[in-house]
């Protein structure tokens, strides 16, 4: 019976430590002490851009296609294929792009951070940093968080573009029941800049949580090569649950009481 509740028990026991560690990192970023290592921050930005951008855009592109075909078939069934743009606009911008972004962030960036920091911990490199008088949390974790905040808003907006483009391809070019102009008219009518801002906030909260959880599990890895693998797997579990919870809370907060649709008075 014990094994069935091992996961929630571990979450509860590590929640406080994760919160404390995250608070420390956030404090270091907000107090701008992280700027001592601005060069390292820029290097981490480069790693993010070169390593993760294309994969994230690729996944968002695929889920955008998915939104497009579901929207096209659903609105056709309602007898209003010209309104496929409503489904695509809401599905892409409000829900699926944040989720796709969160999934790929946790898979690529989150586990990447755990693997990297974990192997540094195992090979005693973090202890070496401390011996040299460098604050290892500041150097390793705070720089990564600042790099994520610098790069990801732009990457996220480009990912939204990739999702929109994919939906356009699926609805207009593949299914082909609505003209390009008709699709664009409805598509842009059902969204406005505040929607994009809310979507970006949703994505950024997910990204922050993923980087912090990744840093915690990587920094506290132990137990040889096996420990690094286990820590990576554990961080993935927590990240995915967090992504879903943040997605739900974001929807409730931003669109729960107000659909923000150009219908009615």
């Amino acid at each position: 019976m014990a094994g069935w509740f091992a996961l929630p028990r571990e979450w509860i026991s590590s929640f406080g430590e994760i919160a404390k560690f995250s608070g420390k990192i956030l404090g270091q970023v907000y107090s701008l002490r992280v700027l001592h290592f601005f060069g390292e921050t820029l290097r981490q930005c480069g790693v993010l851009i070169l390593g993760s951008t294309l994969v994230i855009w690729g996944l968002v592109f695929i889920v955008g296609l998915q939104c497009g075909i579901e929207g096209a078939y659903f609105t056709r069934a309602q007898g209003a294929p010209a309104y496929a743009g409503v489904f695509a606009a809401w599905c892409d911008l409000r829900e699926i792009v944040p989720y796709g972004f969160g999934y790929m962030m946790s898979a690529k960036v989150g586990t990447g951070i755990v693997a990297e920091l974990g192997s540094m911990r195992i090979s005693d490199e973090i202890d070496a940093l401390e011996v040299m008088g460098i604050d290892s949390v500041l150097f390793l974790c705070a720089t990564r968080l600042l790099a994520a905040w610098l790069v990801l808003p732009f990457m996220y907006m480009a990912a939204v573009g990739a999702g929109f483009f994919a939906s356009y391809l699926a609805v207009v070019q593949q299914i082909g029941e609505v003209s390009s102009g008709g699709f664009s008219l409805i598509f842009w009518m059902f969204q406005n800049p505040p929607d994009l801002l809310y979507s970006v906030i949703k994505g950024m909260v997910m990204a922050t949580a993923i980087v912090l959880v990744g840093c915690y599990y990587g920094y506290h890895a132990g137990g040889g090569p096996v420990g690094v693998g286990t820590a990576t797997a554990k961080s993935m579990v927590m990240n995915i649950v967090l992504v879903h919870l943040i997605g739900m809370l974001g929807t409730q907060v931003f669109w729960g009481a107000n659909p923000r649709a150009p219908i009615g008075g």
Binding site: I62, L65, A107, G118, P225
Partner: peptide, 29 residues
């Protein structure tokens, strides 16, 4: 070594997610 296992997990989830969503699109269509 140590970094190898972590990297393997990292690549495994990335490839799985891409494969799953690509298959999802083809299957649903």
């Amino acid at each position: 070594g140590a970094e190898g296992v972590g990297k393997a997990v990292n690549q495994a989830v990335v490839i799985t997610f891409l494969g799953v969503f690509a298959f999802n699109y083809v299957f649903t269509q």
